[in-house]
């Protein structure tokens, strides 16, 4: 492996590992918002997609990518692309595990399939396991949590409130 190839591999790995500013236990790759990374000479072109239209973390994520690329002596060009629209189905298994360990119930799979069809999910009737004790005996407190991407729930067995990543 040449030095140049190694540098390219390193910067790509560094971009993939940029943490989400709101939930720093998960990387932008595992969250599914990193769409592509391309090294072209001195320029690293990165395509990301927002979770929600109004996600206020996008600027911080762009800055985070810019910082790790600059640390490799290169320059980042970040393109924020809306299509295809992000879905929680793009979240990796590793990302889901990291969320659960952090105390956030991961999103349920199949959101993208459901959203593409004409039938809306009844968003209130779902079984969500408590990330603290594992009980599925939980209820929703509010559809909207501390960030756009999360809802509030509570466990009816261990009585702890917790957040859930909304399937979208």
């Amino acid at each position: 492996m040449t030095a140049a190839t190694r540098a390219r591999t390193d910067v790509v790995a560094a971009v993939r590992a940029v943490p989400d500013p709101e939930v720093p236990v998960i990387s932008i790759e595992d969250l599914g918002i990193l769409r592509s990374v391309e090294v072209d000479g001195e320029v690293v072109r990165v395509v990301i997609t927002p979770t929600y239209s109004g996600c206020p973390a996008m600027r911080a994520i762009e800055d985070g990518i810019g910082a790790v690329v600059a640390a490799h002596g290169l320059r980042a060009e970040v393109d924020v692309r809306l299509a295809p629209a992000w879905t929680t189905d793009w979240m990796s298994e590793r990302g889901r595990d990291a969320l659960a360990r952090f105390g956030i119930a991961p999103p349920q799979p199949g959101a993208g399939v459901a959203a593409a069809g004409p039938v809306s999910l009844d968003l209130s009737v779902r079984r969500v396991a408590c990330p603290l004790c594992g009980s599925e005996h939980t209820e929703q407190i509010s559809r909207f949590g501390s960030t756009s991407c999360k809802a509030l729930r509570r466990c009816l067995d261990c009585h702890e409130p917790f957040e859930e990543f909304k399937a979208i």
């Binding site: 929600y52 239209s53 809306l82 299509a83 629209a85 968003l123 209130s124 756009s148 979208i168």
Partner: peptide
């Protein structure tokens, strides 16, 4: 318009939640 179509595809999923919230 491809940009408008992309904005709409993103927004429709968000509005699903708004509508559900108000309906509840």
């Amino acid at each position: 318009d491809p940009v408008l179509a992309a904005i709409a595809a993103k927004a429709v999923k968000e509005v699903d939640y708004h509508r559900d919230h108000a309906e509840q």
